[in-house]
Amino acid sequence: MNGMGKCPGTTSWASFFSRRPTCSKVGKGKALSGILVGSFRYGTTVKQPLLPALPLLLLLLLAVLLGAGCVTQSARTVDDEVRSISSSLMCPVCPAETVDQSQVPLAKQMQEIVREKVQAGESRQEILDFFVERYGDQVLAAPPKRGFNLIAWVVPGIGLLAGGALVAYTVRRMRRPQRGEQTNPFVSAHNGEPDGELGPYLTQVDEDLRRLLGGPGLAAEGPPGRG
């Protein structure tokens, strides 16, 4: 058991960080250089046709990286695999602890079994099935994605989609001027117009008119005299 070799994944990580501070620092440096090259010239309209496409490019890059990462699954050590499997198994005798977390003897034994099976070349699914056969579905840390338990996985997606639809609907409805609003012709009179040169001034006029007329929604925006 002793004098075992270093875990490859971590070695590269450690050596990487002995040379370089955290990622946030890297980002900061780029921010400053971004300023130096002049991305902050406000008021001037520099012709930069590529700019709006940048986020898209970023997304594209991410997609490529993700794809590449999924294809080249890095080689996992036995230890990694054992840890991954045993953190997907619940310790049957402890309240809400995985085999990986728990310190009780049974959990240690289960972890030993996992290790033996991994070394014997059994797949992750085979090992999980082995334990499900003995302890039932409860031994899995996440419900299996089949049968009734599929609901556990589907409902969050439905919920998120419903929420997204609700937000989209709200946005659409809020963007249409409502009945109450039509009584005040000065609110968003230029709504829908292109964001031209006059945009800010129109907005300002809007604001001032609303303020004079005591338009809606101003109660929380500070005393009218200030501004």
Partner: peptide, 8 residues
């Protein structure tokens, strides 16, 4: 009583 823990 299935378990819903970290992996989920």
């Amino acid at each position: 009583t299935v378990t819903v823990a970290a992996p989920f």
